[in-house]
Design a protein around this nucleic acid. Structure first.
Length: 886
RNA sequence: GGGCGGUUAGCUCAGCGGGAGAGCGUCUCGUUUACACCGAGAGGGUCGGCGGUUCAAAUCCGUCACCGCCCACCA
């Protein structure tokens, strides 16, 4: 016997154990079936999962379970990402708490420490995914830093280097002075900041009374100025071009140059040029062959290229001192408040410095071309499609990708340097040594490049590296051929550039084929008020806590129901409660079935096609419909529609109507057998349909109701229903019944008939079909509408009745002495008024020759039918109204 | 400065060329043997404004307003 309510906690542990024990999640490469592949977006091993992960993995899990139940060979590749900077920072913070530092520990010991952390975090994440009900093929789990994937990374690096698509370059990079590493453009966040615009006077050389005013938001960089630029056509400064100004504080003469970059309309029209500390100035410097004076060290403290007084100051202190000193010299013209965007490192959170260093770059523009074409040609399709614009926009303007990082946690770059700096890029140190020997003619000592690769470099290989690429092993090759490209990638829009774009580029370059056919983009999970969830705001919801509180299936179903494509979702407790109630509702429907012995035994040998009772035939039809709706929704990744369809079917069809209508049938020996079997069958089908979205509840009920003999629900196949299972005649009968009951209930309520009181229902003008329906369903109708008498009568409705129209018949509830005539008259008048308005609207439409000529035939026909119906109702109701008044 | 998205019932959101919908909330009634995490019923909307296309517009086009997000080197 089922418990009074569903208890998710025990049920979840039990079901997951069953799935793992039966190997339900294992892909079946040997089975001859269509394959369905998803590679997981590998979570970072930075701690634990958030609600965004819950959404992302639930969507994937639904697709996996659904496709497995459809009979596909379902391959869900699990794994995690080492997440370079992010993980290194987490571990460093831990060290800090112990009073230790990364550098104090040394590289080797530190990396070991990160591995320890990774084990821990990995275990947490694995358990969280299990709690979510996610069922990937655990035996295949990979890590971006494991041996196989590291070999893939080295292979890709060496190949691209040899193809000259990876190269070293000395140029300005985005430098994070806190983390002391280069970062890529994507890791830079522009932040609106209230700053100042300082106007400095630079005295003209040999003409001390005259000066050139420049404006800057970064006064400290003036110590590295090597020119002042003016527009070549700016009449104010024409005579100064080619002359020099004296850089204050430094007393260095610097040239006034002519360059289009200087905008006469902005500020004074003259702009200071600091080639080593500004991306634009760097370009200007190249054009004019200016020296680049780097005034910072890697922590953005001033170095020995500046006058003694400034050395060792950090950039913010230096700013204050420079401004003060300029002011003391009387060269500060003015200071204006100025709002501008300041680039910040997305991890370190401090302003980044454009910094002149040698780094490794990847020629992304070359790799992007086929990746753009693939999406243009539809070989990979985004859902919703509008995200393709975002992808194109970025890919078409892509810049060289800085892939080296001055970190310790990551894939160390496979480059070795000889004594004279010659670089050897090879798979192993031995191969580098061999190459070096050939180069130098003798064995030399090599030193390895200390840098590691951007974490997204290895993530970009994930769709094929996880299957064992580049191993030539026969099994690996077969696997790769079978499971690449993936069917679907499910991910958030926030990593389209970081990850999706890179997988496209690498996949096409190394596999010659796109990494996935469909890209499903979901939104961000926000809090109830639409705020981004964050630890600092304190509004972050822990998915595991939610699961404890509401049950996993409720959490899953909520996320899915809210997952409208291309839109962020607001996760509110009230929604979670609603879907928790839904789970309870299903549980109770099952309890009802169990109490009536409508369980597995009753459903065995049942042929739904041979049912007699319209009620039973009707719910069978609704079930068939529900499956079609579910399939259609999932086909286009409309998880929200899949969820609402099941909700409607289960609650509004199965529970609200079928179970209620089945009650009298179950009580009658003549119909009990068939109805029991139908109920059992419908519930069984419901569990099959529900399973991808609510795996725990459905599996638990499957077992409890005795279906477990067929094996676990997770491994069942979804049936294909024969079309003949739908019976339009039965549907019409039951829809008529539903309408009739609804009308009576509405009237009772409006007329304030006490709930316990039974009333009579008399139908005038009933045709043969209505009479047949009345006859067949009188018991159910009587029960649901609380009637003491129900029949068709030859005479018009008695006076003092509440009236409504159903089909061709007029229904009357005699309420003489109960109803207030005036109230009923008012109600009918309102009703007639509404029908009148509707009908006249339709009449106008149908009276329009253009409409008749241009609208499709079926639209015209539909409108005619509606008009006929409206007019019929109106006439009968106004007739009734007349008699009431008479 | 570019680009994208949004504006529909009190709230959260579907619908995106032919009868304005759902869930929650509100109000009324109800403890009939699945379920009060329940049942029955009701009220509630100039579909942001204006203009256009069309026989027909919440739905397509233009425009304006407001709200988000992404990208971008202006001193």
């Amino acid at each position: 016997m089922l418990d009074k309510t569903y208890r998710p906690k025990e049920a979840e542990a039990e079901a997951y154990r069953l799935w793992e024990e039966t190997g339900a999640f294992a892909a079946e490469p040997e089975r001859n079936a269509e394959r369905f592949t998803i590679v997981i977006p590998p979570p970072n091993v930075t701690g634990k999962l958030h609600t965004g992960h819950a959404l992302n993995n639930t969507m994937q899990d639904v697709l996996m379970r659904y496709h497995r139940m459809r009979g596909d060979d379902a391959m869900w590749m699990p794994g995690m990402d080492h997440a370079g900077i992010a993980t290194q920072m987490v571990v460093e913070r831990g060290l800090e708490a112990e009073g230790k530092t990364r550098r104090g520990l040394g590289r080797e010991a530190f990396v070991e420490r990160v591995w320890d952390w990774t084990q821990q975090s990995g275990e947490t994440i694995r358990n969280q995914l299990r709690s979510l009900g996610a069922g990937p093929d655990w035996a295949r789990e990979r890590f971006t830093l494991d041996e196989g994937l590291s070999e893939a990374v080295r292979t890709v690096f060496v190949r691209l280097y040899k193809e000259r698509l990876i190269y070293k370059d000395l140029r300005l990079v985005n430098w994070d002075p806190k983390l002391r590493t280069a970062i890529s453009d994507l890791e830079v966040q522009q932040q609106e900041t209230d700053g100042h615009l300082w106007h400095f006077r630079y005295p003209v050389e040999g003409e001390p009374q005259r000066s050139l005013t420049v404006a800057t938001t970064r006064p400290e960089t003036m110590l590295g100025d090597t020119a002042v630029a003016v527009h070549p056509d700016d009449p104010r400064y024409k005579d100064l071009i080619g002359r020099k100004v004296i850089l204050p504080l430094v007393d260095r003469p610097i040239p006034v140059i002519a360059d289009d970059y200087a905008d006469p309309a902005t500020g004074s029209g003259a702009v200071k040029i600091t080639p080593a500390h500004d991306f634009n100035d760097f370009e200007v410097g190249l054009r004019h062959d200016l020296p680049k004076i780097n005034i910072f060290d890697e922590t953005a403290h001033l170095n020995d290229k500046v006058p003694e007084a400034y050395r060792g100051l950090d950039r913010f202190e230096a700013r204050k001192k420079v401004v003060a000193d300029i002011e003391a010299l009387g060269l500060l013209e003015k200071v204006e408040p100025h709002r501008h965007t300041v680039p910040h490192g997305d991890r370190g959170g401090v302003p980044i410095e454009p910094f002149l260093t040698e780094q490794w770059y990847l020629d992304a523009a070359t790799l992007a071309k086929p990746a753009i074409a693939a999406v243009e040609e539809g070989r990979t399709v985004f859902h919703p499609k509008q995200w393709e614009n975002t992808y194109f926009e970025w890919m078409r303007n892509i810049q060289p990708w800085c892939i080296s990082r001055q970190l310790w946690w990551g894939h160390q770059i496979p480059a070795w340097y000889g004594p004279d700096g010659t670089c050897f890029v090879e798979m192993t140190e031995e191969e580098a040594a061999t190459a070096a020997k050939a180069h130098y003619g003798e064995a030399v000592e090599l030193s390895r490049d200390p840098d590691v690769l951007d974490t997204w470099f290895s993530s970009g290989l994930w769709p094929f590296s996880t299957f064992g690429w580049p191993s030539q092993d026969a099994e690996v090759t077969a696997n790769l051929e079978r499971y690449y490209p993936g069917s679907v990638l499910v991910t958030g829009f926030d990593i389209i550039f970081f990850w999706v774009a890179r997988m496209m580029m690498f996949g096409l370059h190394f596999m010659g084929e796109v990494p996935f056919r469909d890209v499903v983009i979901h939104g961000l999970v926000r809090d109830e008020r639409g705020k981004k969830m964050s630890k600092s705001l304190g509004n972050a919801m822990d998915p595991i806590e939610l699961i404890e509180q509401y049950g996993c299936d409720a959490v899953r179903f909520t996320l899915l129901a809210l997952a409208v494509p291309g839109r962020d979702l607001k996760l509110a407790p009230v929604r979670l409660e609603g879907y928790r109630n839904f789970a309870t509702k299903i549980w109770n429907a099952a309890r009802f079935a169990e109490m009536n012995e409508a369980t597995a035994a009753a459903a065995s040998n049942f042929d739904p096609g041979k049912c007699k009772e319209p009620v039973n035939r009707w719910i069978i039809g609704r079930t068939v419909e529900a499956k079609a709706d579910l399939a259609a929704a999932l086909e286009v990744y409309r998880f929200d529609e899949a969820a609402s369809g099941l909700y409607r079917f289960l609650w509004n069809r199965l529970c609200d109507w079928y179970i209620e209508l089945a009650k009298p049938l179950l009580a009658d020996a003549a119909t009990a057998g068939e109805t029991r079997a139908t109920l059992a069958w419908a519930l069984e089908q419901t569990l099959l349909l529900l399973h991808p979205m609510m795996p725990f509840l459905s599996e638990t009920l499957w077992q409890q109701l005795g279906y477990g003999a067929k094996g676990p629900l997770v491994s069942q196949r979804l049936p294909d229903y024969p079309p003949a299972l739908r019976d339009p005649a039965a549907d019409a009968d039951i829809e008529w019944l539903i309408e009739l009951v609804g009308e009576v209930r509405g009237l009772r309520s409006e007329m304030n008939v006490p709930a316990a009181a039974k009333v009579e229902l008399l139908l005038s003008d009933a045709g043969p079909e209505t009479k047949r329906r009345l006859e067949a369903q009188s018991e159910a109708i009587g029960r649901l509408a609380r009637l003491s008498r129900l029949e068709a009568v030859g005479e018009p409705p008695p006076k003092g009745s509440a009236l409504f129209v159903i089909g061709e018949a007029t229904a009357a509830i005699p309420l003489a002495g109960v109803i207030d005539l005036a109230t009923e008259r008012a109600r009918l008048e309102k009703e007639v008024g509404k029908l009148e308005a509707e009908a006249s609207k339709l009449e106008r439409k149908l009276g329009n020759a253009n409409f008749l000529a241009k609208a499709p035939e079926e639209v015209v026909e539909e409108n005619r039918e509606r008009l006929a119906d409206m007019s019929g109702r109106r006439e009968r109701l106004s007739g009734a109204l007349a008699r009431l008044s008479a």
